[in-house]
Amino acid sequence: MRLQHHPDVRAEHPTLAVGTFETAGISPEMPLDIEKFIARATRRLADGPESEFPEIQAWRRAFAKMGLKPTQYRCASESLLRRLRKEGSLPRIHPVIDLCNAVSVAYAIPVAVLDVAKISGSLEVRHARGDEKYVTFAGTVEHPNPGEVIFADEDGQAHARRWTNRQSGHSAVSATTSDVLIVSEGLHATAAEDVRLLIEAIAGELRRP
């Protein structure tokens, strides 16, 4: 699976660091250890709210730059950290999703998990034209606003809206998913190293016998 970021997105966000990992043969019965990642995030939250994390502040600046209100449209890692701080836990959905959510809060960096079988051709993170189709988790169809940053495939399917804010239900991992593409993106000063370590953490867990 090929993923690229449009040159315009790169130019507007020069600190962007991207990491990807593709794996096959996942199942809902995979025994994955996620508690150590949640514990790491919980310890960090004890020192201050997620809004003070440099990783989150960088995404808030990016959202503001895109014309979005940062406290209304939060990046995925901020939303998860906020939930963890308020509720003390994260939802359990599927082992791979649960792992990626846990690693996301541990590193405070957004992580997307996409069902490869639901993606047509390659993926590009680009500005929307406005005619792309986005399927919500409820099954309704939306069209991204022109200029909005989306994950788009070659058939014009938008697999994420507002960049790292909201994934599509179309390519969400389900009980029948076998192959997934995992994508992480950071914008803060040490994003390149942190995203690398994040991807290594996910890959290490998924490769454990």
Rank of each mutant, 00 (worst) to 15 (best):
R82H: 13
V105E: 10
V180T: 04
L114Y: 15
L81H: 06
Q167L: 14
L99N: 07
S178H: 12
C75N: 09
L16A: 05
A128T: 03
R10H: 08
D155H: 11
A24N: 10
G204S: 10
T23F: 04
V18K: 01
K86L: 14
A158S: 12
G88A: 12
E124P: 00
E132R: 01
A203G: 01
A112G: 09
R129P: 00
G88I: 13
N145L: 04
A106I: 08
Y134D: 00
R43V: 09
I199A: 03
L187N: 01
P146R: 04
Q157L: 13
R208L: 14
P146L: 08
V195F: 08
V183G: 00
V180E: 08
Q167M: 13
W163H: 05
R61Y: 08
S104L: 05
P110T: 02
I119A: 10
H159F: 08
R162K: 14
A201S: 14
Y134H: 07
K65F: 13
P31F: 13
Q157I: 12
A191L: 02
I202K: 06
A112S: 14
R82N: 09
R61W: 10
T177N: 02
S89E: 14
P91A: 09
S122R: 13
D131R: 00
F63E: 08
G156S: 06
V113W: 12
E193S: 13
L16C: 06
L90Q: 09
L197R: 15
K36A: 07
K133A: 06
D98G: 06
G121T: 08
W59T: 00
C75Q: 04
N165F: 14
Q57A: 12
T15E: 14
G139F: 10
L99M: 09
R166L: 12
V125G: 01
V180K: 06
F137E: 04
E12H: 08
A172S: 15
I56H: 03
R129V: 09
I202R: 03
N145R: 13
H159V: 06
R129L: 12
L45K: 10
E50S: 13
R2C: 07
S120W: 14
T42A: 11
A11P: 00
A160C: 13
R85Q: 15
A152Q: 11
I56W: 05
K86P: 00
P110G: 02
M66S: 11
T177M: 05
T71Q: 06
E55M: 04
L84A: 11
D194M: 07
G48Q: 09
E22S: 14
T176C: 00
H13S: 06
R83C: 07
A11E: 15
V105W: 09
K69E: 15
D194F: 01
H13V: 04
I199L: 05
M1C: 08
I109C: 08
Q57C: 03
L114W: 13
A158W: 07
K86E: 15
